[in-house]
Simulated scan of single mutants.
Amino acid sequence: MNSFLKKALVVSAISFAPVAFAADMTGAGATFPYPIYAKWAEAYKAKTGSNLNYQSIGSSGGIKQIKAKTVDFGATDNPVKFEDLEKDGMVQFPAIIGGVVPVMNVDGVKPGELKLDGPTLADIFQGVISDWGDKRIALMNPGVKIPSGPITVVHRADGSGTTAIFTDYLAKTSTLWKDAVGAGASVKWPAASSVGGKGNEGVAANVSRVKNSVGYVEYAYAKKNKMTHISLKNKDGNYVQPDDATFAAAAAGTDWSKIPGMGTFITNASGAKSWPITGASFILLYKNPDNKANAAEVMKFFDFGFKEGKNMALELDYVPMPDVTTDFIRKNVFSKVVTK
């Protein structure tokens, strides 16, 4: 073997050595946190060489995949009940906080210019209010020029934690919605004119495409697609705009350590600055995983996000979990996962 070939083989071995020992984690589920998980994954791979393959397929899909043990972790915005976690031998923890925002495609209306309260928003999605020229909308928005036009409701076609957060809010603020539709990852959408979209991506695309439409997406998708969001009246009676500060205000009163399984909705929270459709996204892991090395890497990945991913989260208008909560997760959740 000539010296040139020997040198080439040595260089090749060095180049690929880190990759050979790097873990290739797999996860699936919620589209709500996908933008921040993608950003964390890029930074984590650059630092450690470990790759995350995350399928943004919706919360219901993520729960199905972790139960089938086809992924290392599942992700859901619709938290699993504590008794179900215990039955299935899993743990759950919140990884990130964000906001769901109603978005619209109506000519001449600027982002955040239109104001609505919960009952009116519920009536729009229920089809009780079916035209943008409705007097209830006009009375709530003096001075705002809203052209009349039949409203098309855009909703999730897949089982969705974003839908669970959104419908939980509507059910808390509208008795009519609660009694007729209810809340959950999948509901029967009653509006006569409605279109389904897969994932936050699909809803954003349909709202952008369909004139006079209204939908709901995680705020990062609204920003990325330069969509027109709607300002909402919160529980304290104030109209607020969505951003990381109003999401943080809504989550401020939540003591995650006191909640069995850490699973809860934080919609319609009290607080002068609280965004009313705020929610957390959760991670599901088996206590005794089949692939223990990958489970260990998953926890390292989210710990990286907790410690070094805060600014990345804020750049996308997510809210990092508070340090007191991440300390609790390390001591009381990660400690339950067998990795050896």
Rank of each mutant, 00 (worst) to 15 (best):
A13R: 12
A245C: 05
S274E: 01
R330A: 02
K310H: 06
D84R: 12
A251I: 00
D303Y: 11
L284W: 12
M227Q: 12
A8G: 03
G58P: 02
A269S: 13
K115H: 05
G199Q: 14
N311D: 09
I137V: 05
V11F: 05
I63V: 10
V207F: 10
V10R: 13
S50L: 14
T267E: 11
L52E: 10
S335D: 02
Y286K: 04
S59H: 05
K226M: 04
G184K: 06
Y219E: 08
K233T: 01
T152C: 06
L85F: 02
S148E: 06
V195E: 01
G143A: 00
E86T: 11
F166D: 03
G261A: 04
P322C: 05
F93C: 09
N268H: 02
V106Y: 01
K340N: 04
T267P: 07
Y44M: 07
K39E: 04
T175N: 09
G261T: 01
W40V: 01
P111L: 05
V103A: 11
N51E: 15
N311Q: 13
I57K: 15
L170H: 10
A164T: 10
N53Y: 06
K110I: 00
T167V: 08
N2Q: 08
K287R: 14
M312H: 08
T48E: 08
P260T: 04
N291G: 03
E42T: 13
Y34Q: 07
L5A: 12
S174K: 11
A192D: 01
M140N: 05
F93V: 03
D323M: 04
N288G: 01
R136S: 10
N206M: 14
F125T: 02
A251N: 10
I63N: 07
T31N: 15
H155S: 05
V214N: 10
A252C: 03
G49W: 06
K87H: 08
N206L: 12
S335C: 04
A43N: 13
Y221S: 08
T26N: 06
N311I: 02
L316T: 00
P320F: 02
Q65V: 08
W275V: 09
V10Q: 11
G161N: 10
G27C: 05
F247D: 00
R209P: 01
L121D: 04
M1D: 05
S60R: 12
L85S: 04
F21G: 10
V195A: 03
I277A: 12
D303G: 09
G184C: 07
S274F: 04
P242Q: 08
D24L: 15
I146N: 05
Y216T: 08
V333A: 03
A280T: 15
E201A: 15
M25A: 00
Y216V: 05
Y54G: 08
V217H: 13
A17N: 04
M25N: 06
K226G: 03
Y286G: 00
T152G: 11
K211I: 03
L116V: 09
T325W: 03
V207W: 07
A245D: 13
K340Y: 09
F265G: 07
A68F: 07
A222F: 08
V19W: 11
A180M: 07
M90K: 15
G202I: 08
S274A: 13
K331G: 00
I124M: 09
V187A: 02
H229A: 00
M227L: 11
T162C: 13
Y318D: 03
D88N: 11
G237S: 06
D131S: 01
I96W: 04
